[in-house]
Design a protein around this nucleic acid. Sequence first.
DNA 1: GCCTAAGCGAGACGGTACGTCTCGTCTTATC
DNA 2: GATAAGACGAGACGTACCGTCTCGCTTAGGC
Lengths: 197, 197, 197, 197
Amino acid sequence: MTTAPSGRRRGRPVSEESRQAVLAAAADLLDEKGYSRLTVDEIARRSGVSKATIYKHWTGGYDVAVAAYGLRVTDAVPTIQTGDALADLTSQILRLAAFYASPHGKVIAQLLAAGTGQPRGPELLQERFFAPRRSATIELIERGKADGQLRQDVPTQLVIDLLFGPIVFRLFNGEPPLDEGAAKELARITVASLAAS
Amino acid sequence: MTTAPSGRRRGRPVSEESRQAVLAAAADLLDEKGYSRLTVDEIARRSGVSKATIYKHWTGGYDVAVAAYGLRVTDAVPTIQTGDALADLTSQILRLAAFYASPHGKVIAQLLAAGTGQPRGPELLQERFFAPRRSATIELIERGKADGQLRQDVPTQLVIDLLFGPIVFRLFNGEPPLDEGAAKELARITVASLAAS
Amino acid sequence: MTTAPSGRRRGRPVSEESRQAVLAAAADLLDEKGYSRLTVDEIARRSGVSKATIYKHWTGGYDVAVAAYGLRVTDAVPTIQTGDALADLTSQILRLAAFYASPHGKVIAQLLAAGTGQPRGPELLQERFFAPRRSATIELIERGKADGQLRQDVPTQLVIDLLFGPIVFRLFNGEPPLDEGAAKELARITVASLAAS
Amino acid sequence: MTTAPSGRRRGRPVSEESRQAVLAAAADLLDEKGYSRLTVDEIARRSGVSKATIYKHWTGGYDVAVAAYGLRVTDAVPTIQTGDALADLTSQILRLAAFYASPHGKVIAQLLAAGTGQPRGPELLQERFFAPRRSATIELIERGKADGQLRQDVPTQLVIDLLFGPIVFRLFNGEPPLDEGAAKELARITVASLAAS
DNA sequence: GCCTAAGCGAGACGGTACGTCTCGTCTTATC
DNA sequence: GATAAGACGAGACGTACCGTCTCGCTTAGGC
């Protein structure tokens, strides 16, 4: 077919290197001092990328933080499909609980939290945090329903709330994070309550 | 001069009036603009109480905000015991979901969230938001277990996570808050999964 | 009499110390690097006074610079009155020329220059630079006219222009500054042209 | 081979068109907003010439501005020689005063002023603003001396200072610019003070 | 009629100052 | 002795401009 319309724009190309440096610096700083002490000035200083460039790519510090940490979660908790929907969901719950129980969990909590008081916070969280795994999870659930492993009378969004809500809740309610035993117990109960009778 | 006849100490007494004015101003501001745009300067301006006094009574803006809003959730979602544990838990889930879907709920969410990045945040949250209802809820669950209405093989804390986690989850994941129908569906499923077979 | 209306306001008083530190730091920086490389950030850094305080007292860097250097000129070239108007004017011309020929002269030139492109530049210059010496100089001229030493048919402002204009001109026209001999020659001619015949 | 026969080098020739566009845009912007609000970015935007090209031809914004405006003053205040030195000098004073009182005069003042804080500022000013008229003015003065119209005991440079200093002074001291009456009065006095007795 | 070079517009980049904002502390006079 | 008033040091915010640096395109000689 004909030539590609262009592919290449005029002018100096955007530096992928800078983008990566900013995200890496932001993720490191989040791990070191948490979101509430994260500043754009320091991201710029540490990454060697100028503030102007940061503000050209992202709308502000929160945007950078979510982008930086979103990758981390997506990497740490990939969706795996083996064909057995119940087993796959259980596996995902356990891996997510383990990640949230790690020091990273506290940062996640802060990011989820800060989103509620941010102009485009909820959208950003959706896009960067939940969306990457959400569609795979939905597919998993739909397959389970089709297989006859999962009840078909519960809306898919509600299934997600039931499975992952308790894990997120632990980030905020002041109780210690779920240990492995509790996570298994939790997974057992929620998956069972959604399994076809 | 001469000694004060009563237990009155020398000097101007601490003003309970000031304390009330600060809490009222802070609560109003939270309702108007949310936690992220709350400033101590503005609380001082609106309440007519000086910043120095505020910092004498509280450790900072977060402390004031939690103190000011703490009662709201406790008042709005009291624990009711009718004797029927399952019905009481269901009722509480619905009332909590309704509250979190209201404008006040959004403020509470921001306070829960911000707590994760505050020095004494988790303790404050425990004290002001969760503790007041926690013991009553635990009692409710224990009674349900004793009655034979609830399964006895699930730790009480896990029951709490399962019941309330999905509601809190919705505050942060960018999906619209639970409407009444979804809340009922949610309550039906979670309570059923915890009911004795 | 009666009681002073107040004199003292409530609240922490303005820190005269800070004001002095800012002016001293600004004057030093002007001497070191000139006006075009003067920054408010560095004034704040060197003086130990915060930027917010600087912007509370002055409208910006230009304002600070003029205030800081205005004092210097006024101190360096005081108006002296001995009773002999012609001699006093001559003396003032010579002292002003000497000051403008020193390294300070270059800074003065930059400040005069920058004023033309500044919102309230001309007013600031009037107030801080010229006004302190202007009234004394006017008085000198008026006295000279009354004494019969100076021509009475030349408006006082024009006298000022004629006496001081040539000195200021040398700051901008790229020629070397007036040496002492040239300054004396200049003073001789201008004063003579304004002396009563 | 070796030497190119003509001045023509290989490759695309420098665009005279671009050079003109930059100067035109800069002159327009100077008229519209003055030197202090002139930016290289805007010159590039308005002229359609890239910043890289501008920095290839000139050292910076000041250089462009001086180049763009240099001709104006030379055109506006040409040196005229009728043979009567005193009349010619008077005429030149009046025309210069009128020009400095016009809107263009304010821009010139800013450029003169800004030059004191620029790396090659003084040289540029000499070249573009003063040199073109300086030699003609000197010639005028020398002729006046030879004719016996002007005193011979005053160095020529000092004559220039005396004649033009007061006019330039008015640009910077915050007083309103010289109106025609004041300019005539000024010219009368200065020329008289330099005329042979 | 290619080939090679230089000049060009576009525009992203690191750097750095701007003027504003909020925090938590402090120093007064007042009650 | 606790307040209100409010100035202060610290330091982050998001914007603006600077001068430099790639890019892909254009315009010419040289072959």
